[in-house]
Design a protein around this nucleic acid. Structure first.
Lengths: 343, 343
DNA sequence: TGTTAGCACTCTCAACAGGCGAGTGCTATT
DNA sequence: AATAGCACTCGCCTGTTGAGAGTGCTAACA
């Protein structure tokens, strides 16, 4: 849409965005003319800036301050202006070594990953573990491991495994459990795990089940076994966004932290990103996190050994170092996928 | 130590502390004289206040401001001055209903509990799940549930159960797994689970094991089964402390959030509290969290059905509503214990 | 026609001064 | 021992002023 911009305008816009990212302060015409060794006078720059303001790419906080980029400008910037930095050798080393040191266990690795993201970007690192319930159901098994304690083992068609401990009101004989397992294995093939759950719930509500206590209990247990425990989500480096001058104000801060406390919001937002491949960028209002507070989000997918998909990324101010964070997120996602698949 | 205070001094100190808690502003002599319907003039109060300041119980931020209580004063206040409020019927209702609605699962209940604590107190709610590794080892079992996937089920002497999925490099026959289990069950009786782990690690290091690949692998798996996954910890309502006027400053805020990010610190702090029964209170520097930022901590223990011990509590500013928060923490701990035991 | 130099104008910010009010400490009095 | 009175201190608020940064406009120039 903004292709009508002349090369010079684009160049100036880029300069302004980068200056503002670096300094967090409104940038004036002379600063652009000077710093960027354009062979232009400040007056010319001013004209161009006035244009850009009319196009909705810049605003001035007040008459005699410089100008700051709008979200639209950031959008244009990341879409067609930004020159991505390479991930430095040192950064690569850190990403890899951090991932490895976390040892075994998906949770451990992902937690460490979110910490690494935060450290390298100097913003907030975020990782969402692959969700299980979207996978197709393959097999379930119930094992009695104690009085009134049952272990459910659930296998998805991709080979992902999940086990869950269930405490029951009554005691069950092993053969009952086998029957329960068989029933589900026979009847629920081909559904996703969340569909399995819905189907169980539907049955529980049906009349004939209401009066069959035995069946009713069995369904109840099955339901627990396939219940969605909620995605695991790792957020690290929340304190870092306090470094950003634009968030030194307590009111804004509060808004942000409150938004983050509802992890549900984050999950919802990030599951949107799951669908597409590669790095995705959401700027300001596009994040639909806390409308006003200028937050941006850079994410990418990663894939586990069992082909489930998770999400990782960085949350920071709109005024974010896109040129370095984008490659970092990209590289980290690749590395995590690789690491998870080679085990 | 402070028993030398006259009743009147104590009364005045109490008034000051409570006023300050209510307003977050230095309280002056006339305010005390007026508000508290003492039959005293402000001048008299001033004398007493000068005394209290000399005793290190009050400070003035500057000459012509009122005075604010020191940590020492809060200590004295909670130890012998505070009149605890009753937990209101409405609060009780909320505590109970929130706990119940969380449904099954220890994690779910505890998470909901920390949220409730935060809501009722208007500060930060915190819950630490019972640690498992301090329990005495009773029984372990390994079950093969897939290619290179083993499920370890660990039972403590108190009946608490923990299961863990282990991915291995090689495949194991069921009979190997049975042997591994038997070995541990026979040799590790009477130790705590963390001792079991240490003993396994010691064996792994011993020479004769180094050359027995089979044994070495078996130990490696066992070690994973008894590894301490770190205590589960639930923190809720972080944003609430931003409501407190004393934390509207960005620098202080940052300090606090950074302290909380190292959950290790919290765990360490809270495990101290595990030992004693009843409500425990840590004021300011006593918390050994971020030295300067005036943070207080009110905690109590709770007990699960398998007799393991967890911790719950509230973190807030030193200037905290002790009179209402203490009873809330106390009551919640009792309720959680009760709820966990009646299932 | 696009670019530049110059200039008047606007607006913020920091510094300063003065008045206000809250609160204190001291002293004399009851 | 408690109180009333009083002088004093000090932070906070307000208004003012000057400096500086940046803009928009206009006229001149290539």
């Amino acid at each position: 849409m903004n292709i009508e911009l002349s090369p010079r305008s684009r160049q100036i816009l880029e300069a302004i965005v980068e200056d503002y990212i670096a300094t967090a302060e409104p940038v004036g015409s002379s600063a652009v003319a000077r710093r960027h060794a354009l062979t232009l006078s400040s007056a010319t720059v001013r004209n161009v800036m006035a244009n850009l303001e009319e196009l909705g790419l810049l605003t001035s906080p007040h008459t005699s301050a410089g100008r700051i980029p709008t979200e639209k400008a950031y959008r244009l910037y990341v879409d067609s202006l930004v020159a991505l930095r390479q991930v430095s050798r040192e950064e690569k080393r850190q990403i890899i070594s951090h991932c490895r040191q976390a040892g075994v266990g998906l949770s451990g690795i992902l937690k460490e990953t979110s910490r690494t993201l935060s450290q390298l970007s100097n913003y907030m690192g975020i990782v969402i573990a692959p969700s299980f319930t979207a996978d197709v159901f393959r097999h379930i098994e119930f094992i009695r491991i104690g009085q009134r304690k049952i272990l459910a083992i659930l296998v998805s068609s991709k080979g992902a495994l999940q086990n869950r401990l269930i405490e029951t009101e009554d005691d069950y004989a092993p053969e009952d459990l086998v029957r329960m397992g068989n029933y589900l294995n026979d009847n629920m093939q081909g559904m996703t795990i969340s569909q399995v759950r819905e189907s169980i719930l539907a049955e529980m509500a049906s009349e004939k089940v209401q009066y069959d206590q035995m069946l009713s209990r069995a369904l109840k247990i099955s339901e627990q076994a396939v219940r969605d425990e909620g995605d695991e989500i790792f957020v690290e480096g929340q304190a870092r966004i306090l470094d950003q001058p634009e968030f030194s104000d307590a009111g804004r801060m509060k808004e942000i932290y409150q938004a983050f406390e509802q992890k549900g919001l984050l999950v919802q937002l990030l599951s949107r990103c799951m669908k597409a491949d590669g790095v995705q960028i959401y700027i300001g209002a596009e994040t639909s996190l806390s409308q006003s507070a200028g937050i941006s989000l850079i994410t990418s997918r990663f894939v586990t050994s069992s082909n489930t998909v998770g999400m990782l990324g960085v949350i920071g101010p709109t005024r974010m170092g896109y040129s370095s964070v984008i490659p970092i997120v990209d590289y980290t996602a690749r590395m995590v996928s690789k690491l998870l698949n080679e085990v």
